[in-house]
Design a protein around this nucleic acid. Structure first.
Length: 815
RNA sequence: GCGAAAGUGGCGGAACUGGCAGACGCGCUGGACUUAGGAUCCAGUCCUUUAUCGGGUGGGGGUUCGACUCCCCCCUUUCGCACCA
């Protein structure tokens, strides 16, 4: 058998699709479906992982088209950002040039794959007609007090020489260059995402179409925890310091307090000369440490300040220590140390010989301070706790809270791990922050009519120096104040790329709007996204940010929905055949271009779909291609073998064998339809292979031949669009297969007339019986008992019980 | 450490609500057709056995007439968070 002419077929159909604008989405169609895949970062040509992501979305989009939906299936480029800038510096070209040329290469690859994108809606975030509206978003956030500038301790990447958002620090390292992240005190712009913490959390409960793991990751990232803030007085001072705790039931066990070295309160405390030097030294050393040095491995350390605090409940005098195991940015930055009931405090106290005090006693046991190998953190009975003695600790939490609140010793508090989103970057390649600093008028947002604030082109030295390269462009920096017309300066930082990608999905519905980011009507029509497909690596970054933007735009009346996507699907990664992540440095990157050059698009697609279910990772090797190639060759050959004309046939005049095949076909329609719904493409294809195996036994002049081929072409169309179109036109159709209705299965035909059911004796398979479908227990039992293979197992035994499941099995329990 | 997912032939994987484990494909073995086969077609392919019997879904226990599937304990792998008080 010759290989089918994939190259010609692909070129032919891609041209026809383009000429007929098959994938152009109309403006306000009757029945909409928004199929979105995460847009691409143009750091080179697209790789095999993109290929997988996009062909998954493409299959869904195509099936939806065939089901009568007008599908919004757009594509775009996340084109600003550090990686492009770094690559451009390495190659000594302008980031813009580098980015746009990558986009051109990648776009033409995507077009060669023949994906069903409406290219008229393409979005490129680094172009002024897009980033103008990114800046507009900033200004709306600013006007609503959700963008603010603050001096704070921020994550600093010493290699990239820029600050990073919390979400961009992975295990203490920069998400891009993997350098250890340090802290720096800087004044920066933040988005107040924490104002939405509760809604971002509760909104997750409504997202039934999101896989649970992403929701769990977001929940953990938001990290809501309810507790109480308790005030401690300082001895010989009128100052008070507060701690946050979720275990107020252990309050009588506090034997020290620890404050983080960065805490500003340290400067206000009166530390005597005996301790001051050691404290200062300790603070200096801690702040220099990287996050990794401070958190991982090493044992906890600290230094005593000489200051004492008073426990507001027990009135005991306790030592105040500085310890860099205390996080500066969580709670109040001060913790109460309960070494008997908190493992961290336990380690710290052991090291510095701080006393332990047991206040929670496990039921029926007696903890002895001297014998404790670790903290006891489980619930128990409160002891040594004055009026609370005898209370079960989990009830004690409520009671102590009440006590504290009633006496004004503290207040209930909810804390989140989620921090505000730091969005300024000291780099060139991003959307400039649209803010003006006027000596007289202060901080002013750029007037909306003056947008975009253009990124200066031309001779710019964008090699990182630790300050934004824009600071060195006087033409950019120095302007007149829009209010007083006096001397003013622009903000010289650019925005985190994740700001650009937080709203791109809204632009697709109205990609060329020059007056607004998007029209409200169009957004109302297209949103929410029906299905969003992308990698799971964005779980706590982009996928949180775009929810935040959606909620914000909902609040200010631009959107009618407050969650962006109904369904989220995270496809698995594509790894090399040894299970390694593909990367340029390892030289194990597979290119989809090589693949489609060698085998054709449809064969490559089938090989990828068939290799694993979509959510699972794929160890990619070309070995799997063979099966896909054979399969499609055999499908193509069906057309040449056909000797009948047309697809009509009379149900009453077909042979039994044809009837069998007809029924098999309808079971296949059912299976494929259901499998596409749950993105189980591997089993959808397997079922079509099974059908093909039977179909091939049919002679070319069989009455149902044409009909079977028609339906098979349709079922295959989401996966092999080019081949399906070719077969379709070969069958005499003169309209695209994607404009024709997706086949529906005949409910009668999918039923079996006869089925084979297993006969078990004591749960072990002994025989099988062929019986009419829906037959009753008695009839099956009679047959089963008489079965030659079953008989020996019944000899001399009594049937105690018969388990019969209709159309499933019969099990005889004997003794 | 905490959280999540997963562990099935030589390999990728199937078995959706407990009901014939290994669909479908790759690979392999044998055969056919061929000057040739890295093309195609046919047959076989979990282990053991000539066949039956028996065993078998990471390991151990349990529930059940019946467990890859449910429950408990353990092991391994991958991912996420990582001193969040």
């Amino acid at each position: 058998m010759k290989t089918y002419p994939s190259r010609e077929i692909e070129a032919k159909w891609q041209k026809i699709w383009e000429e007929n604008k098959l994938y152009k989405t109309p403006e306000f169609p009757k029945k909409k479906y928004y199929m979105l895949e995460m847009f691409a970062y143009p750091s080179g040509d697209i790789h095999i992982g993109h290929f997988r992501n996009y062909i998954i979305g493409d299959a869904v989009a195509r099936q939806k088209m065939m089901q009568g939906y007008e599908v919004l299936h757009p594509f775009g480029w996340d084109a600003f950002g550090l990686p492009a800038e770094i690559a451009a510096i390495e190659r000594n070209v302008h980031p813009r040039e580098w980015t746009l040329s990558n986009i051109n290469v990648s776009r033409s690859t995507l077009k060669r794959i023949g994906l069903s994108y409406d290219w008229d809606r393409e979005v490129i975030t680094c172009l002024p007609d897009y980033y103008r509206w990114t800046q507009w978003m900033f200004i709306q956030l600013y006007k609503n007090n959700l963008a603010y500038r603050a001096q704070s301790l921020v994550n600093w990447c010493p290699t990239c020489k820029t600050v990073l958002a919390n979400e961009q620090v992975e295990q203490g390292r920069c998400w891009r260059c993997k350098s250890e992240v340090t802290k720096k005190e800087l004044e920066q712009w933040f988005f107040r995402i924490t104002a939405y913490a509760d809604r971002l959390l509760s909104g997750l409960d409504k997202l039934d179409g999101w896989r649970p793991n992403v929701k769990i990751m977001q929940r953990n990232w938001i990290g809501k925890s309810q507790g109480v803030e308790i005030d401690f007085e300082i001895e010989n001072s009128d100052k008070k310091i507060s701690v946050f705790t979720t275990r107020p039931d252990t309050i009588y066990g506090v034997t020290f307090m620890a404050i983080s070295p960065e805490n500003q309160l340290l400067k206000e405390l009166k530390i005597d000369s005996k301790h001051a030097k050691a404290v200062e030294e300790y603070i200096r050393k801690s702040i220099q440490k990287s996050d990794i040095e401070r958190t991982a491995l090493g044992e906890k350390d600290g230094v005593f300040t000489g200051v004492y605090a008073i426990n507001p409940l027990s009135k005991e005098k306790i030592q105040l220590w500085v310890g860099d195991y205390v996080l500066a940015t969580y709670g109040t930055g001060i913790v109460m140390g309960v070494p008997a009931h908190d493992q961290r405090d336990f380690e710290f106290a052991k090291k510095y010989k701080i006393p332990l005090k047991v206040v929670i006693q496990p039921e029926g046991a007696n903890l002895l301070v001297d014998n404790m190998q670790g903290a006891y953190t489980e619930p128990g009975i409160m002891i040594n706790s004055d009026i609370f003695n005898g209370t079960w600790s989990s009830d004690g939490i409520q009671k102590v809270n009440q006590y504290v609140v009633d006496r004004g010793l503290g207040r209930l508090k909810t804390n989140y791990k989620l921090r505000d989103w730091l969005i300024s970057r000291q780099r060139y390649w991003g959307a400039p922050i649209p803010i003006i600093y006027c000596q007289k008028c202060g901080i002013l947002p750029v007037l909306e009519k003056d947008l975009p604030v253009l990124l200066p082109e031309g001779e710019i030295d964008f090699i990182p120096k630790g300050r934004s390269p824009l600071a060195d462009v006087p033409k950019f920096v120095n302007i007149t104040c829009p209010k007083c017309k006096g001397v003013a300066k622009r903000d010289v930082d650019t925005m985190d790329t994740f700001v650009c990608s937080s709203w791109y999905f809204l632009r697709y519905g109205d990609a060329h709007n020059g007056k607004e980011p998007f029209s409200k009507e169009k957004a109302k029509f297209w949103l929410p996204v029906d299905k969003y497909i992308g990698g799971i690596e964005h779980a706590c970054g982009h996928l949180l940010y775009f929810r935040f933007f959606t909620k914000f735009l909902f609040d200010i009346g631009w959107l009618k929905v407050d969650e962006p996507a109904i369904e989220l699907f995270n496809h698995g990664m594509v790894l090399d055949s040894e299970g390694q992540v593909m990367s340029k440095s390892k030289g194990n990157v597979s290119s989809p271009v090589d693949l489609i050059d060698k085998y054709g698009v449809d064969v490559s697609r089938v090989a990828m779909y068939f290799s694993a279910p979509s959510e699972r990772e794929v160890l990619w090797s070309e070995e799997g291609i063979t099966g896909a190639k054979r399969f499609l060759n055999r499908v193509y050959a069906l057309l040449e073998r056909m000797k009948t004309n047309g697809v009509e046939f009379d149900c009453n005049s077909i042979s039994d064998k044809e009837k069998e095949i007809y029924k098999h076909l309808h079971r296949t329609i059912k299976k494929v339809s259901e499998d596409i719904d749950r993105l189980q493409f591997n089993t959808a294809i397997a079922s079509m292979m099974e059908f093909l195996n039977q179909f091939e036994t049919l002679s070319g002049d069989a009455k149902i031949y044409g009909y079977c081929l028609t339906v098979l072409a349709q079922l295959l169309a989401p996966f092999t669009p080019h081949l399906s179109e070719e077969i379709w036109s070969g069958l005499g159709k003169n309209i695209s297969i994607f404009k024709c209705k997706w086949p529906e299965y005949n409910k009668e035909a999918v039923k079996f007339e006869q089925i084979t059911i297993p006969v078990q004796v004591n749960g072990k398979l002994r025989s099988t019986l062929v019986v009419p479908v829906d037959v009753g227990e008695e009839e099956v039992k009679i047959k089963a008992v008489q079965d030659e293979k079953v008989k020996p197992y019944l000899e001399g035994k009594r049937i105690l019980k018969t388990i019969f499941v209709k159309n499933r099995l019969i099990n005889l329990v004997v003794k």
